[in-house]
Design a protein around this nucleic acid. Structure first.
Lengths: 234, 234
DNA sequence: ACTTGACAAGAATGGAGATTTTGTCTAAGT
DNA sequence: ACTTAGACAAAATCTCCATTCTTGTCAAGT
């Protein structure tokens, strides 16, 4: 019995085009493309299931079996996809960080002409969505028994590295003139500050934090841009 | 300023002004001065005892009785001085943060002419001493069972507030021309970045972190100084 | 002011046994 | 191929209980 529970609203949708063999009348490349897509879908579904469970109780009290059944998938599949519980938790935190990265990338694309505005936009939307996030609330309420705090703090080196690399790449992409060094530096600072503001919010709320960050980093951005323009002219 | 640097291992005195002493007479002042000094000595001794114990095992496994006897003092005295275990832990973290503040203040005083150098000096010496600190190492190794991680992360709002206020005051003192807003902003960013760099070190080591911070915040400082000079001229 | 001894309430500890969970494996099913 | 159910050992967790320890606060002694 595997406890057929559920699926409230869930996001999960296990239905998949069952015709795996046939190339769906499209180009052949889709075959490998399908594989990858299916794999990503699987990962996302599992991560989503964990997310929903985390809204109810801390990570330490959630079993891998629950995650698997929440995703409508066997436990074995979960282990095949993410080696261990620890690795799964790591992947989860990274995926949540993905929202942050996505916010920043969207902001960059929306303000290709004005990096300072992009910064404001990025931090604002991220901090606001993080503030509404029940997961973040649970993390903040964690007194150490929750089990996920270290991942965001003492063991967050992988997340910081990954997120800042992604953001730096986006910056270089959106603002090709900016030096790679500057982008990397700004990206890492942004990530560190974002984590800091999530774990201990600014007393004045998110817009205060955003305004502060812009005021603080604005001069650096201005200088970077000025250097970029000079470099181009040269 | 107002910092009586101690010659020995590092019992920096936290001076709390709160002079409630209504002047009764001159000779009385000596007595009150002694009182205060004795009180501070007591606090420091207790905190030092805790520090030594923390070098051996995590906070969760240290009892108040051990701290008291380590300081050669009765348990009751400990409770009289710091209300509860939680408050003691808080005070301890703040006292450790005192080193950070002291480093920054010293750096400010040593570079009254050049804030950027002061920033570099401050962060460099702090990160280096923190890197050598066995306590910090223990905190970083903490998997959540240690019991002190939340104080430095999710519950670090008091520390951030206190440290940045102190540093901002020192900045305003050392560089009177700088706007209070700018000092406050820079101080808070410095504190947040310092905490971030302690919990997840920069891959390139402390000097890399310092160089990064200087490069990042340098433009802001330059602009603040430029504004300060203009303000003076006006 | 500091210490000592005592105190209740609550937290931790330990031990022994049952139960769960993790991580891996295999034999199937699609 | 990919997934699944079933089974498995090893490790972790839970339960229940009794016991000890710790916290926080007394009052009285120095």
């Amino acid at each position: 019995m595997t406890e057929s529970a559920t699926s409230t609203d869930g996001a999960t949708s296990t239905d998949r085009a069952t015709s795996t063999d046939r190339a769906t009348s499209a180009d052949r490349a889709t075959s490998t493309g399908y594989r990858r897509a299916a794999r990503l879908l699987l990962r996302d579904t599992l991560l989503d299931a964990a997310r929903e469970l985390l809204g109810q109780r801390p990570w330490a009290q959630i079993t891998m079996a629950e995650v698997a059944s929440g995703a409508g998938v066997s436990r074995q599949t979960l282990y095949n996809e993410f080696g261990s519980r620890e690795q799964f938790a790591q992947a989860f935190v990274i995926r949540e960080g993905e929202r942050f990265v996505a916010d920043v990338e969207r902001a960059i694309d929306a303000h290709l002409d004005d990096p300072a505005s992009a910064l404001a936009d990025a931090l604002q939307s991220f901090l606001e969505s993080a503030g509404r996030d029940p997961l973040v609330a649970m993390l903040l309420a964690d007194d150490g028994t929750g089990g996920m705090l270290p991942l965001l703090t003492t063991q967050s080196a992988p997340i910081v590295g990954w997120a800042s690399a992604r953001i730096a790449a986006s910056m270089c992409n959106g603002w090709p003139a900016v030096a790679e060094d500057d982008a990397q530096l700004l990206a890492e600072a942004l990530v560190r500050l974002a984590i800091s503001y999530v774990t201990v919010p600014a007393p004045g709320g998110t817009q205060s934090a955003t305004a502060d960050a812009v005021r603080l980093l604005g001069p650096f951005i201005d200088r970077a841009i000025r250097r970029a323009i000079l470099g181009q002219a040269h």
